[in-house]
Nucleic acid binder design. Structure first.
Lengths: 297, 297
DNA sequence: AAGTTATTATGCAGAGTATGCATAAAGAGG
DNA sequence: CCTCTTTATGCATACTCTGCATAATAACTT
């Protein structure tokens, strides 16, 4: 039984001609040629443009390039997930988690969300947009993202359920050895910070809520930009500048005294940790994990 | 060539047993039974639970119920779209459009976005969340939604491109015959309005931007709630209360004098009309439509 | 324009698959 | 333990797919 006819179409899109595609699919050219022909009959769709010689994909096929690839990818993923669930005997559960949440709370989440002996949690770290996409595309069962408390929460999508499962504060920190120096310079009207790119959530948060008031009273220079809060933490610890990082992430270093919290001077951002899932799901593993998340965290 | 093996799985999920599922798929029970068996071998996944007698779907299969159905649906849709494109010779293009935008600007969009002789536009009307979902799931090539000007635009998702293609104002209106009465009551401290459900965009907009200041100075009673701005328009015209509707929608009635604009008294909401598409697309019809949208509207 | 090369299609035989029918095997329920 | 319902298997038949060899066709060369 052949279940991978979509792959034939993708091969066609990937290659410059039938013979080429046949090679990709590991069959002889005549066999592949006929396969496409019968597919054309079965689907009722012209798949290749025979008017030219290295005959490329037809217009119809090319127009659906993205959709076909997506479908093929989803199919592969779904099957491999099912196989894994089958062989391991463990339920699979994908949780999409914003990078900063993964780093600061990853193990806590994995431990609290399910019994390891019965469910295998795959924590998929991504930026906030991607988390939402993963959820909507059903490539993740649950998404965990930050939401800034002072921002008006846009009404939740009607097909999603959400719950606040915790709180977090973005605090400005720097290496304790350099704290005095940085503060002094700040009062002189100059502040060096470790920034986040404007197109990631933390960057946008910083730009909207923290920097405007600071920039009103001193000149801010962004020493480095990194998308990762762990990297920002490292850099700030070495004295490069102030970085805003999740409190949970800075906690160990703060307790040890290596790091200094400048929140009183520079301001913090209060955030909720929001969990989301599809309103309609009957997957037991998901529902179980959800109730644990809402209850325990 | 069999391309519909996913449908076998769905049939299995839909039915109470193999024989039942066989009937759904229009084959004899023995044939279907063997089909499932070979599928189990090919996929390497146990599909049915044989320990009980009307043997139901296995745990693994049931856990993936939603995903399988989604995949099956997507596949059906994609193929039928391709067939249609093939037979009509017209490129298909799905544009997701927020209900209120569809009603107020539908024809304008369809006319300006593509040449009818070469592209077939399907305007898919949905609420705002659904528009976004359709876009992200690639079930729509372009989405058109409102965005309230005074709200901080959350940073756009990095994988999407967006453009403001127009403006719109949500204005409070009522039937001209009842305007004086309503205004008088308003000054007496009572206002009757046609509301939108809080979980749709217009409802949220109303609740956040319009009603708070009004409620501070008078008591607001929501006479009726409807999710459709056209319905709201009708109801307000009949004197039931004030409704906030897109200016373009009210325009004809306002010009005719049947409707009165109460914007000066009750306040309006300024909105942008935002078009979005995936950043990565090579679909010519989409790119063409996009440039027309951005240029002409 | 004719010949050469690259690419795709087709004839054919053999191997492999799928199906329906009849019937056996296996749970479920009494 | 027997009956009923449901699923699996044996078998013959029809169909499908593949590789090989080779024909047909488009593109390129001289």
């Amino acid at each position: 039984m052949r279940i991978d006819w979509i792959e034939d179409l993708v091969a066609l899109l990937d290659s410059g001609g039938v013979a080429d595609a046949a090679r990709l699919r590991n069959v002889t050219q005549p066999a592949f040629s006929r396969r496409i022909k019968t597919l054309e009959e079965v689907l009722g769709i012209e798949l290749i443009d025979r008017s030219v010689k290295p005959s490329g994909p037809s217009t119809v096929l090319r127009d659906r390039d993205a959709e076909l690839r997506k479908l093929a990818a989803e199919q592969r993923l779904l099957l491999s997930d099912m196989r894994q669930e089958q062989s391991s005997g463990l339920r699979q559960l994908v949780i999409a988690s914003q990078h900063a949440i993964t780093t600061s709370m990853g193990t806590q989440i994995i431990n609290s969300v399910a019994e390891p002996s019965r469910t295998h949690i795959r924590l998929r770290s991504a930026n906030r947009d991607e988390c939402e996409t993963l959820l909507i595309r059903r490539q993740a069962a649950i998404s965990l993202t930050y939401r800034i408390k002072s921002e008006p929460a846009s009404e939740p999508a009607s097909f999603l359920i959400e719950a606040v499962i915790g709180e977090e504060t973005l605090i400005p920190v720097c290496g304790s050895a350099h704290a005095a120096d940085l503060i002094a310079r700040f009062h002189d009207g100059a502040l060096r910070i470790i920034g986040y790119p404007a197109d990631v959530f933390l960057g946008a948060a910083l730009n909207r809520h923290i920097l405007p008031p600071i920039e009103a009273q001193c000149s801010v220079s962004v020493v480095t930009e990194t998308g990762l809060s762990t990297a920002a933490l490292q850099l700030s610890q070495s004295g490069l500048g102030v970085a805003w990082v999740p409190a949970a992430l800075a906690q160990p270093d703060l307790a040890r005294g290596d790091l200094t919290n400048l929140g009183d001077t520079l301001g913090c951002i209060e955030m909720d940790i929001v969990a989301q899932r599809w309103a309609t799901t009957s997957n037991l593993a998901t529902l179980d994990a959800w109730s644990r998340l809402v209850r325990e965290m």
